[in-house]
């Protein structure tokens, strides 16, 4: 599954700007943005579905896989209702999730970072 670069760039442009991140690698199967304190990694696999969605805290040398940062802050959760507004829920439900695209998870990852990773991103 190739990454949907156009969608990813659109989704992450504000985070990149706000936290002064740089696009350091970009291929058909993955992108990485970072500064000297954090990296955000979005990678797909060549013959498998689904993305590796990762926030890496360079200061603490700690990785957060997709929702682990949310779990660390809020404990276990079992529903996207917990962190999505009504409007975000509607948007997310209309995004594709199939063998070719998973814009749905890219969108959720961006929301989780914006809402729960501020301390790490702005350190």
């Amino acid at each position: 599954m190739k990454t949907n670069l156009k969608f990813i760039k659109e989704q992450f442009k504000n985070i990149v700007k706000t936290y002064n991140l740089k696009w350091v690698s970009e291929g058909e199967y993955g992108i990485k943005v970072e500064n000297n304190k954090v990296s955000i990694i979005i990678e797909s696999e060549r013959w498998e579905s689904g993305y590796i969605l990762l926030l890496f805290d360079k200061i603490k040398n700690k990785s957060y896989l997709f929702d682990e940062i949310l779990i660390e802050k809020e404990g276990e959760y079992d529903s996207t209702d917990f962190y999505l507004t009504e409007e975000e829920k509607i948007i997310s439900e209309n995004l594709p999730q199939n063998e070719e695209f998973d814009d749905y998870n890219i969108y959720l990852f961006r929301i989780i970072l914006e809402k729960y990773a501020v301390e790490i991103l702005s350190q």
């Binding site: 990678e43 969605l53 997709f66 929702d67 682990e68 998973d102 749905y104």
Partner: peptide, 8 residues
């Protein structure tokens, strides 16, 4: 950190 993935 590329060994596992998590998908909603």
């Amino acid at each position: 950190n590329r060994i596992y993935k998590k998908i909603q």
